[in-house]
Simulated scan of single mutants.
Amino acid sequence: MVFIIPFSGSAQSVLSDIAKRIGSPGMQVVHTKNGKSSLYTYGLKLYGSTNTVDAHTRFQAASLTKVVAAYTFFKLYDQGLIALDTPLYHYFAYPRVKDNLAAQAITARMVLTHSSGLLNWEGDVGTQAWRDSALHVQFTPGTAYLYSGEGFYFLQETLAFLSGQSFQQLVENLVLKPFAMHDSEIVWKESLLENIAVGHYSLTEPRNIGKYRSANAAYSLYTTASDYSRFLQLGILEGKGLKGSTHTLLLSKAAEVSHSTETRAIDSRVPLALGVRLQYNEQGTSIWHTGSNPGFRCFFIANLKTKESLVSFTNTDTGMPAMQELMKALLPKGQTFWSYEWRQGELD
């Protein structure tokens, strides 16, 4: 793939206008069309500094990490180490569900379709108290939708146990190295300080740098738009490294979605595949995902037929509206972006 830096003046102007409207100090965007990828960069890594965002500036990928985790799962699935519908507890006696028979029924399919019944997070994530705490299900696993990072952490611990490798090692060996993601890390490393985007509450209010020293399948990836776009194009859209049947399974509709117990018409436009979301609109079927870490908002969307894709990172809590604006500016006209309409105003 060829990367063109910078974009044409008109396209760069569009990016600048969007960043200013949403109040983002910096942005990275990669748009891939007809096999050619073009890179946008804009603004500052830290408000008030002179440190500009470039092609190698690392952003927090937030929940886009979950798609990397899903691909990692399917690599081990292809090796026969784990099945979609066998309870994870059958493989790994996760201490946090040892007294919860309902949670012991959670499968990989339930995790990947956010139907495990687990909350997004219970407790202060990353602390010893959190690691020692018990998990609770909000409904019978497999019967409803509830977005859950805890489910992905349960899956990561299971994959680590089965493989004999840490989740960090799995991601490095199965994703980062094979897809030449040289600017990406699944855990914090001090070398990231050389070119890191700092998260912001708003345009002028920086946050402290989030240093995730333990891998978390739900949110701990540091990456660039170029690296992530390469993974998206090759690993997810092409299925490189996966069996053909597994790749088809990954991208196929697997479950319905809902905001609550009340079904809405829009829900049918954005069902779940296994680890990614689907969007049905005038342009056909796309996959997508959003991400929200403190100080960062990001997303990707990719059309399954044309392989056109868009990956975007912003370093501010106010960055999610960039999703709609960038899609309208760069993707084919005459389509409804149900992905944004469904996700708008919600964090993950």
Results as ranks from 00 to 15, higher is better:
171 V>D: 05
208 N>V: 00
143 T>V: 07
139 F>I: 00
201 Y>I: 14
178 P>V: 10
155 L>A: 05
188 W>I: 15
141 P>N: 14
224 T>M: 01
149 G>C: 13
146 L>R: 15
230 R>A: 12
221 L>W: 07
199 G>N: 02
134 A>F: 06
175 V>E: 03
182 H>I: 01
141 P>A: 11
137 V>P: 06
158 T>H: 04
211 K>P: 06
137 V>L: 02
189 K>P: 02
177 K>C: 04
185 E>G: 02
161 F>Q: 12
230 R>H: 06
195 N>Q: 08
208 N>G: 13
162 L>E: 08
136 H>Y: 08
203 L>P: 05
156 Q>E: 14
153 Y>D: 13
147 Y>K: 11
212 Y>W: 11
191 S>G: 04
187 V>F: 07
176 L>V: 07
197 A>Y: 13
222 Y>Q: 10
191 S>H: 13
219 Y>H: 13
175 V>I: 15
196 I>R: 09
205 E>N: 11
236 I>L: 14
125 V>H: 11
184 S>R: 01
199 G>F: 08
212 Y>N: 02
132 D>K: 12
142 G>K: 09
184 S>Y: 00
133 S>H: 03
182 H>P: 00
231 F>Y: 11
165 Q>T: 07
174 L>E: 05
171 V>S: 10
180 A>V: 13
168 Q>R: 15
201 Y>P: 00
161 F>A: 14
186 I>E: 01
128 Q>R: 14
